[in-house]
Design a protein around this nucleic acid. Structure first.
Length: 480
RNA sequence: CGGGGUGUAGCGCAGCUGGCUAGCGCGCUUGCUUUGGGAGCAAGAGGCCGUCGGUUCGAAUCCGUCCACCCCGACCA
């Protein structure tokens, strides 16, 4: 139970987040440093995320498979940048069955290498392409500084790995899947995201191009919420993924990879949550509606529960995920606070007065207090509830979008940029040099988040840092 | 991995410069009364004082070690 007050979000965002994850029973710390235990409520949320994504993957022609957790150390070493990027955070297995292994096994930090190895066996002809495979699983990266959901040593995700005949096809796939992530984030998680390209310094180790969906959290920091990479022929050459084309010549494939992790849960928490706790988007919420029956005595209880049971069945049949909180040991007031903390989008109260008037009370989580409470008829209740859930979903997206837009600014000059990134995102021209990027980072701790695909100006301008000619604008922001 | 902080009941804390049987609030258990915004009363249960070692007649308290977590840096989905 969570009787204690949550640290207000405005007072200390980090404490608020940590307390909320624990109190809402999304996750808990594990006995192993840096790892997390995802509790049933958090895992159900993840399952809903998985379903929404998996549906989209299937719709775009992908199939699921499973590749091993262990990867021979030598595989990682085959792609130079890849191993350089991941070496510091590898977990390595040196013993098995009481014997020292001939070759150490890496616990996968990502699966490009094993999958590349398999692809080289499976792909022979242009007729075998494209290969469009996704895997749901867990990976391990030995992180030094961890935070539940946002960065843990082990995390759960999906990784898509595709192989194509041409660069164009692979680049299209990269952007297609970025679009899938953006569609998911916006329409399921109600998180407005910017689609864009990562800078050279920020891109994935071994990629030719990395793309990202960037989201703004409630403290204005940016969170990379999903990534999609065009890997060029880097992994194809390292693992000899070749096919014979129509002209009977050997060609290297062009590959992509794309991933979205349990970090998305952190994004949902930090985008929508408020001082009272979590606010879950109805489309992903494990419990969309909680019914709190109210009664004073056995007589009232029997009539109230009769209506409650009938309403429960009706909504359940309509496909709404709901729960009746019939706990006897806590008062209705306690339940209100408890479910608000857990982020259930809609609360229904059914009491003696409602039984009398053939009504129920509905309270919207996104609008606390009296403002969000209405009394509706029990007639056509499933339709009323479904409509209200849709309204809440839209309201969350609208609010998050307004917040984000209000905190993105175009700096007049470099001094202005330094101010802006203290509490928001700066959108400005950048010459795309590592030096300017590094200078911003050193001066402000803000990094380039992405060069957005949409919304680029027609005309060229001047780099906000050095004044050199610049073709494109970039977002600078502090990030998680 | 560097700098700072914290670790005493499930949770939040007190226990001061070394001393008695280690306390308080919340939660938990049982009973009765309650129930439309975090209920009340009564009686209970619950503690290797993070770990290992040292100083001491005596350590939750002093010293050291390690571990975990939090904050700030360097590194990252």
């Amino acid at each position: 139970m969570s009787e204690d007050q949550l640290t207000p979000r405005s007072e200390n965002f980090s404490d608020w987040y940590n307390e909320l994850v624990l109190k809402a029973e999304l996750a808990d710390y594990s006995p192993v440093r840096g790892c997390m235990v995802v509790r049933p409520y958090g895992w159900t949320l993840w399952e809903n995320i998985q379903q929404a994504l998996d549906r989209r993957f299937k719709d775009t022609g992908h199939v699921n498979a499973a590749f091993p957790l262990f990867i021979p150390m030598s595989f990682l070493e085959k792609e130079k940048e890849h191993v350089a990027g991941f070496a510091p955070e590898l977990a390595v297995v040196t013993h098995g069955g009481g014997e020292k292994l001939e070759e150490p096994l890496v616990v996968r930090p990502t699966s490009e290498t094993v999958i590349g190895y398999m692809y080289s066996k499976w792909i022979k002809s242009w007729r075998d392409l494209p290969v469009l495979i996704n895997q749901w699983g867990n990976v391990v990266r030995w992180e030094l500084r961890t935070k539940l959901f946002l960065r843990t040593a082990e995390f759960y995700w999906q990784e898509g790995h595709t192989a194509h005949a041409t660069e164009q096809e692979a680049r299209e796939e990269t952007l297609r899947m970025l679009g899938v992530y953006a569609d998911f984030a916006i329409n399921e998680a109600a998180i407005p995201v910017v689609q864009g390209i990562k800078s050279e310094t920020e891109k994935f180790a071994g990629a030719v191009m990395s793309t990202t969906i960037e989201a703004m959290m409630g403290d204005t920091k940016a969170l990379q919420s999903g990534t999609s990479h065009y890997l060029g022929q880097n992994f194809a050459k390292a693992f000899d993924i070749q096919y014979v084309d129509q002209n009977n010549t050997q060609q290297f494939c062009h590959t992509t990879s794309w991933g979205l992790s349990t970090r998305m849960i952190g994004a949902i928490i930090m985008t929508h949550g408020d001082d009272k706790g979590l606010i879950l988007p109805p489309r992903l919420a494990p419990i969309q509606v909680v019914i709190v029956p109210i009664y004073k005595n056995a007589d009232e209880k029997s009539v109230v529960m009769a209506v409650t049971d009938r309403v429960f069945q009706e909504l359940k049949t309509a496909g709404i995920r709901l729960k009746v909180d019939d706990r006897e040991e806590v008062t209705p007031g306690f339940k209100y606070n408890d479910w608000e903390m857990r982020g259930v989008p809609l609360r229904m109260e059914i009491g003696p007065k409602d039984v009398e008037k053939n009504s129920v009370a509905l309270a919207r989580r996104d609008r606390p207090g009296k403002e969000g409470k209405t009394f509706v008829s029990q007639e056509k209740l499933a339709a009323t509830v479904a409509e209200m859930l849709t309204t809440i979903q839209a309201a969350l997206l609208e609010r998050a979008t307004a917040f984000r837009d209000a905190n993105i600014h175009t700096p007049k000059d470099y001094e202005d940029l330094k101010q802006i990134v203290q509490n928001g995102w700066a959108f400005s021209y950048w010459c795309e040099s590592k030096a300017c990027e590094a200078k911003v980072k050193e001066d402000t701790k803000a990094s380039t988040r992405c060069i957005p695909l949409a919304g680029q100006p027609e005309q060229a301008g001047n780099c906000i840092v050095c004044g050199a000619p610049a073709k494109r604008k970039v977002y600078f922001a502090k990030s998680y």
